[in-house]
Simulated scan of single mutants.
Amino acid sequence: MIDELNDIPALVPKLLVQLASLGSITQAATALNVSQPAASKAIRNAEIRLGVELIRRDNRPLELTQEGQLIAEYAKQQQEKEDALIQQLRQIKKEGAGTIKIASFGASASTHILPNFIQRISQSSPNIKIEIYEYTDEGALSALREGRVDFAIIVDKQALDLDIIPVMTDRLVALVNENDTLSKQPTLSVQEIMSRDFILTKGGSEALIREWFYLSNASLKAKHTAVQLTSILALIRAGLGISIVAELAVPDSHPNIKVIPLMPEHPRPICVARKAGSFSSHAAKSAWRCFEARLQ
């Protein structure tokens, strides 16, 4: 029966809806801007196809049979769903409704970068909902490439499969106990860093830190390791060594610890990225335009 119903022209259910209200094929046809003969033929062919009568023709005004009422009710429900869908799409287009997912490389990006972007998005499209997921830098990149998020705040990769918008440039800095003589230095070299026990972060900046040691022709030797920055700060306060982290990751309050730039500096370009190609939603497209507006 489903196949037969699919074979019925879309005009027939609409005619039955109108006929149930108007009681006349002529008036139903006029309401749908078709001729009366075409309407009658369409209904008759549908009856033949289905093997049941859809109209009680011996009554005036005309009435639908139970089978005709079933089809008319089905058509009304479909029309209501279609109307609701159209309304929802119009709202999405007009107000930017929808949900976007953004990956960031931990608290530093979420704290210092995303609030500004979210504010921009909310101002232009107040009905967009935003979900933030925190990863390491590589984890954020993987989530983006696997389609689990719409955008990612990452260290600039210059990858061909990504569209990127520069956001800011971060840098590596040393964290030193204020009682350490190195805390008086304006900058710290790799030799000075290596003169102390080193505490290596296992968070998102580890690869960049290793790269800085490599470019400085030095071998990184970590005495301690930690994932959480709070743990690293506690170890430094206890006089157990010094560390290097991304400057954005340093909390506003870090008592008893000095933040010292490295020499040579090692910048960390940060960008917002998306997979090249089409957008997953209108909301994502609207959000990307907000990101692009930052460059203008």
Rank of each mutant, 00 (worst) to 15 (best):
D7G: 10
D7I: 00
D7F: 03
I8F: 08
I8Q: 07
I8E: 09
I8C: 13
A10C: 02
L11W: 12
L11K: 10
L11S: 07
V12G: 09
V12W: 04
P13T: 06
P13N: 05
K14S: 14
L15K: 05
L15D: 09
L16P: 11
V17E: 11
V17M: 14
V17K: 11
Q18N: 08
Q18L: 02
Q18H: 07
L19P: 02
L19Q: 04
L19S: 10
A20H: 10
A20M: 06
S21I: 07
S21T: 13
S24L: 08
I25E: 08
I25A: 06
I25R: 06
T26R: 14
T26H: 12
T26G: 10
Q27H: 13
Q27P: 00
A28W: 04
A28K: 03
A29Q: 01
A29F: 02
A29G: 06
T30A: 13
T30Q: 13
A31Y: 01
L32A: 02
L32W: 07
L32D: 04
L32R: 03
V34T: 14
V34Y: 12
V34D: 03
S35G: 14
S35V: 02
S35L: 07
P37W: 01
P37Y: 04
A38T: 12
A38L: 05
A38Y: 13
A39M: 02
S40A: 14
K41S: 09
A42W: 02
A42G: 07
I43Y: 02
R44L: 07
R44F: 05
R44A: 07
R44I: 01
R44M: 08
N45L: 06
N45E: 13
N45F: 00
N45Q: 13
N45T: 05
A46M: 07
A46V: 05
A46F: 03
E47Q: 14
E47M: 11
E47A: 10
R49T: 15
R49P: 01
G51A: 08
G51R: 10
V52Q: 12
E53K: 15
E53A: 13
L54D: 05
I55A: 01
I55W: 09
I55S: 08
R57Q: 12
R57T: 13
R57M: 13
N59S: 13
N59I: 15
N59R: 15
L62G: 08
L64H: 03
L64I: 06
T65L: 02
T65E: 00
T65D: 03
E67C: 00
